[in-house]
Design a protein around this nucleic acid. Structure first.
Length: 580
RNA sequence: GGCCCCGUAGCUCAGGGGAUAGAGCGACCGCCUCCUAAGCGGUAGGUCUCAGGUUCGAAUCCUGACGGGGCCGCCA
């Protein structure tokens, strides 16, 4: 039940009737007609811009259209008041039963807020995709939380969602991993490791070294790299993926599919993807121009196999093969996206770090070419997480082994706090992560504010039961909601009514952060209503000796709690029953 | 040099064609004999970086400046 779209349909019906009667000329397009909550609540419950957007095409005065539309709308029982304001806004006040029906819908419709927006379309959300060379750090955490929440949001909005992780296990970085693990293996055999410049020095490889010893004994010692590199690489990569899976589990992220880059090699999939582009005349041998302005010192023209990505909106063409004929990293990525397309997805979403911003256009170009323009690719870039400790910026370095891991954060702050905090910014805005603030679980942490609102509702239900007033779900669903009608109570119902609308807005923009902000506002309204009870005891939820009124009032806040619970569920945060 | 993101209250940020631009923190003034004060109410604080343009209407869209960040051919 989305009351905004229902009222919009009513407005369209009235406009159609006006056309039929000749009050409006035929052939008008109504797609610009919107019904929205007004910024200022004093303007009513909803406003429509219909008269203003139609004035010009209809060749009529906006206020005249608005007056006629208002008269028609007022005939509907749901509309209590329709008045023209300002330049031609039509402000609507809805009758109390409308809001009471929203409350009932929240309690009785299991999927209140769910949308058919996605129409069951298959969407693939690729996120995290951290290199399998070590544990996940704070930066990865943001992408993980964002991607997971986005996937949940889209599922809630009616999409068929697949969460996917692309394992970059085919490049030089996993050779570095293997060499690093080999040194730890030597260490496990009593030799001193030589962690050369460029190798990964982190302690997390020590157990990998030990595991290698358990498996190979000393048989790999004193052997040339060519003898052990492949085996050690495979072994270490698997160990790292186990580590990463464990990190994801700690955060509550569960992938549906793990795809391997390495598995694309030798299968002909890369060749097939490139061949598909070649058939379209998009692959050619050529020499790239040097970057304008700042030419690298060692620039020399090279003959390479290039993808004509400029034909699909990129700024320059991109190499898919190195001058020695081997694939660039871009080639398997093309094949991987081709694979996603051929698996029948209607929509692809990639969640990248902001440092991959320069990669967006070529990836979109590839997907556009490979799918014949059928499958849109939306790339969401997560900006950097800026770490603070003791109020001071804190530099992370993988080389120096001074990076803060996901595990550090989640084990100390908890998954709920971490996840909510990561979603209190748009993905394309940088995020400050102040370790001390998050760790001390201070009260200005919004996640507690929202959880507290939910806990308060639970508390009221517990207290009601103690007072001998039924407040179980069945009682609330059957409550006589006509007993709630105070403006402060209806205001909360209005906020609840925005939930289905918010889901569609958030899903359209792939913007899960909107949920976090909405939940904060809803919690604020709930806390506000709660405190009204201090001054006006008739606004308290438990009315001693009046079971019917109590049930109606508790039904209202239960409805808010249902929405909070659903919203937190999308964000992957637990709704608290109590905050002791 | 090119491309991408950002610029809104003292600070951190929402809002992304609609009316008098919002929240948190910080500051100030209030509210617990009463459903959890991890809460609430109020006051103060703004040329929405600037200049053009589109529009009935621009913080929002377009162009260009300025400022901050990121990226830019055989790393992934």
């Amino acid at each position: 039940m989305n009351i905004f779209s229902e009222i919009r349909l009513l407005v369209i019906d009235c406009l159609d009737a006006m056309v039929a009667e000749g009050a409006l000329p035929p052939g008008l397009a109504f797609d610009q007609v919107a019904v929205e909550p007004p910024r200022d609540a004093a303007h009513g419950d909803m406003a429509t811009n219909a008269a203003m957007v139609l004035a010009k095409p209809a060749g009529q005065n906006p206020r005249a259209i608005a007056d006629a539309l208002a008269a028609r709308l007022a005939a509907d029982p749901r509309i209590e008041l329709a008045e023209v304001a300002g330049p031609g806004f039509l402000n609507l006040r809805l009758a109390a039963p409308v809001w009471q029906a929203v409350v009932r819908a929240a309690l009785t419709d299991a999927g209140f807020g769910r949308s058919q927006l996605g129409q069951g379309q298959k969407v693939n959300v690729e996120f995290v995709s951290a290199n399998p060379t070590g544990p996940m750090h704070v930066g990865h955490t943001r992408g993980a939380v964002f991607g997971d929440a986005l996937a949940s949001l889209l599922a809630f909005a009616g999409y068929d969602v697949t969460r996917e992780y692309y394992i970059n296990d085919g490049g030089a970085q996993v050779d570095v991993l293997a060499r690093s693990a080999y040194e730890r293996y030597r260490e496990a055999n009593g030799l001193s490791p030589e962690i050369a410049e460029g190798l990964y020095p982190g302690d997390y490889l020590v157990p990998v070294g030990a595991a290698l010893k358990a498996r190979y004994g000393d048989s790999l010692l004193e052997r040339p790299e060519a003898d052990w590199l492949e085996d050690v690489r495979e072994f270490a990569t698997e160990q790292m993926m186990a580590l990463i899976r464990a990190d994801l589990a700690l955060l509550g992220v569960e992938m549906d599919v793990f795809s391997s880059e390495k598995a694309l090699y030798g299968t002909g999939k890369i060749e097939a993807a490139i061949a598909t582009l070649r058939e379209q005349g998009l692959i050619y041998e050529g020499v790239l121009e040097p970057p304008k302005g700042k030419t690298p010192e060692d620039w020399e023209p090279r003959q390479q196999t290039l993808f004509r990505s400029t034909a699909h909106g990129d700024d320059v063409d991109r190499p898919v093969q190195k001058s020695d004929g081997s694939w660039t990293y871009f080639a398997p990525d093309i094949a991987y996206h081709f694979d996603k397309i051929s698996r029948g997805f209607d929509l692809l979403i990639d969640v990248f770090g902001a440092d991959h911003g320069g990669y967006v256009k070529r990836m979109k170009a590839a997907v556009s070419a490979l799918s014949g323009g059928r499958v849109p690719l939306d790339v969401k870039l997560c900006q950097l997480v800026k770490l603070y400790k003791n109020g001071e910026p804190f530099k992370m370095s993988k080389r120096a082994g001074t990076f803060v891991t996901l595990r550090d954060v989640v084990e100390q702050a908890g998954a709920d706090v971490t996840r909510f905090h990561m979603l209190t910014r748009k993905n394309d805005a940088p995020l400050d992560f102040d370790f001390d603030k998050v760790l001390e679980q201070s009260k200005d942490n919004p996640v507690f504010y929202v959880q507290y609102a939910h806990a308060r509702v639970c508390s009221v239900q517990r207290r009601a039961a103690e007072a001998g007033i039924a407040a179980d779900d069945a009682t609330l669903r059957a409550a006589d909601l006509a007993l709630i009608g105070h403006p402060a109570e209806l205001a909360l119902a209005r906020k609840i009514a925005e939930w289905p609308r918010l889901i569609e807005i958030a899903a359209r923009g792939n913007e899960p952060h909107r949920i976090a902000f909405y939940l904060y506002e809803l919690a604020s309204d709930l806390h506000g209503l709660w405190n009204r009870g201090n001054d006006d005891t008739s606004l308290r939820f438990i009315q001693e000796g009046d079971a019917a009124t109590s049930a109606a009032k508790i039904a209202l806040i239960r409805a808010a709690a249902v929405v909070i619970s659903a919203g937190l569920g999308i964000l992957g945060v637990t709704p608290a029953q109590e905050m002791r």
